[in-house]
């Protein structure tokens, strides 16, 4: 279960574009709410208006998860402004999952309130997918990791290896990604906290997740 990774009230999920941050965030929220926790999810993607945690708002709300999303998310207006409600994540007792936009561009949104995150306490995870071309090598993935830290003024606590190629992901592909994630871990000095795989893939020690990406057909 992903929720075993949660070590503080605020969990920040960051990483490269398309690494699977939203899918991890939504899965984490579902795991936590099912284990009886009060959970809020912040859709904090101010960069790209497509494929975001707000896509799952109906399912999340039905389970009692509060979703804080940009005011115009999924309205066809390409304007990413957050509601004032966002600031309640620093005062509530709820567990909060912050789903950040890709790369350092997305991390800019964190930098505005980095002092509040530090004061409240947070854990930030780096989502790694070695099948994305810009993070195919551990060295390139490390550069993006460093840029996110520099921009956000916050530090990562660990790596979630979410390497996949979507529906065609096989057991073999997941297994082949593990040495690369470990290589990244060696370079940056952060532990690989989990390797994820869809429930349909049979890998004993992988953390099972569901595909929560919006499907068009």
């Amino acid at each position: 279960m992903l929720n075993k990774l949660v070590k503080s009230r605020i969990t920040i999920i960051a990483g490269h574009y398309g690494s699977g941050k939203t899918n991890i965030s939504v899965n984490l929220a579902l795991d936590m709410v099912r284990s009886g926790k009060k959970v809020s999810v912040v859709d904090f993607d101010i960069v790209n208006p497509y494929f975001r945690s707000a896509d799952n708002i109906t399912e999340l709300n039905a389970l009692g998860v509060r979703v804080i999303a940009p005011e115009f998310a999924n309205t066809n207006v390409d304007m990413n402004t957050l509601p004032k409600e966002y600031y309640t994540i620093f005062s509530t007792d709820d567990y909060c999952i912050v789903d950040v936009g890709g790369d350092a561009d997305g991390a800019t949104a964190l930098s505005i309130d980095y002092d509040k995150y530090i004061k409240s306490g947070y854990t930030m995870f780096y989502v790694f997918n070695c099948y994305r071309p810009m993070t195919a090598s551990p060295e390139d993935a490390y550069k993006i990791l460093l840029n996110i830290e520099k921009t956000s003024h916050l530090a990562f606590s660990g790596i979630i290896n979410n390497s996949n190629i979507g529906k065609e992901t096989t057991e073999k592909l997941v297994l082949e990604s593990i040495p690369l994630a470990e290589e990244l871990s060696k370079i940056c000095g952060l532990p690989v906290l989990a390797t994820t795989a869809l429930r349909t893939i049979d890998i004993g020690n992988a953390v099972k997740i569901e595909n929560k990406t919006k499907q068009l057909f």
């Binding site: 398309g18 071309p133 190629i165 979507g166």
Partner: peptide, 14 residues
């Protein structure tokens, strides 16, 4: 080797 890509990125790489 297969990569996971957006259509926009795939056109650029190709």
């Amino acid at each position: 080797q297969k990569y996971l890509m957006k259509g926009n990125e795939a056109i650029a790489e190709a």
